[in-house]
Design a protein around this nucleic acid. Structure first.
Lengths: 211, 211
DNA sequence: ACCAATTTAGACCGGTCGTCTCTAAATATC
DNA sequence: GATATTTAGAGACGACCGGTCTAAATTGGT
């Protein structure tokens, strides 16, 4: 999967202790996703990210202008990552459309369990800090949610075409309803450290669809 | 509602500038509700509460052992206040039970608008900080949610008796579903600064009930 | 061989803010 | 007058914050 020679022809002073991921910027963003998803933006210090990734502060400010810029980079990466994950499920032809969405909720259950319910949804978590975040984050967060919502709405329209969903259903509204509730379920699962809220919401959501 | 004489026979050194609420402890808790509901627990400093209430630091530590103890006091007060508000709506005989719950969601819309969507639900907000809070807060928060859930479940059972809700509905599950989603809606409304998520969730929730 | 660009290294800075302590002052009650 | 209660407010003391700065170590270009 990698160039066999792994020549590591990377410019600049080499790391004192070689890291698993030689791409420092990338490593910082990945670490940022983990930390911010657990602790949020405001109460997370740069030093915490640095220590986790094993990178000195100089490198951080070499790649990012500020904590705020870093936050935006992390957010963008997360949004992309998540959109891909979503599409992977929702566009796969192996299952009927509605079942795809249900499987997404199952995937998420496994994901939260894997992290012992300490991490939630980065977008949901930062959303809670909206009054404390630098300007611009709020629009960004809402835009990401709208993007995910659109993807779910498209899937619901496919479900309509398959006859899984009543033809008169407003798929955009239903997708919004899904995400509002789903974020609530993630939040609650994080509090209880149990999969129950996720399972319960999923169960009830699908049970209440008509046709 | 108060003793008519308002004798203010309060022991101890009087405040330099007399406050509207002479009960210092009470004033601190009320102020705490406001601040914590906006900013959460971790990133809120005692000084911020003090300044808002107009109380010196010495008074604070006279009434509370620590920030943590203060947090619990604030939480208890909020839980009580909210439970009363909930019961006021859900037990009133003026409306059919299901309509009472719907009216509760309308009240909440007005409440959030009144604070310009800067405040959410204290329990939901603190829940998001669960990984950062002192031990014990998580159980407390979950217990409060369970309490509210029980109250809603009772209301739903009344709705069943009124024939507003299918007799085979599991009211406990439905109440859990409601709160999971509703907290999500509050969170989202805080992000968008609009009532739309609240209205949309309410609309869809009630539209999807059977019978 | 040399210089420029890149990247890592990490000490350090100034400041904010954190919780909490301490002493004194002013009042009510006994 | 003595004691308990409550308010007043300075300030201790450290943790930590985001961010800067200079140096070192490497590659690539010429």
């Amino acid at each position: 999967m990698q160039t066999p020679t792994t020549p590591s022809k990377r410019r600049g002073r080499p790391p004192k202790v070689p890291r698993a991921n030689p791409d420092t910027r990338d490593a910082l963003i990945r670490g940022g996703i983990e930390v911010l998803t657990e602790q949020g933006f405001v109460s997370t210090g740069i030093d915490g990210v640095l220590k986790r990734v094993g990178v000195p502060k100089g490198s951080f400010y070499h790649y990012f202008d500020s904590k705020e810029a870093f936050g935006h980079a992390v957010l963008s990466r997360y949004a992309d990552y998540f959109a891909r994950k979503l599409d992977h499920r929702l566009l796969s032809a192996e299952l009927p459309p509605l079942e795809r969405l249900r499987r997404f909720t199952q995937d998420a259950q496994e994901g939260m369990a894997r992290h012992h319910y300490r991490r939630g949804c980065l977008v949901g978590n930062l959303g809670q800090e909206v009054t404390l975040l630098p300007a611009g984050f709020d629009e960004r967060l809402e835009a990401i949610l709208q993007d995910w919502q659109r993807r779910v709405a498209d899937c619901l329209r496919l479900a309509q075409a398959h006859g899984e969903l009543a033809a008169d259903t407003d798929c955009d509204t239903l997708a919004a309803f899904f995400w509002i509730g789903w974020e609530g379920a993630v939040q609650r699962a994080r509090l209880t450290r149990e999969p129950t809220p996720l399972a319960l919401f999923s169960q009830e959501f699908f049970a209440r669809l008509s046709r």
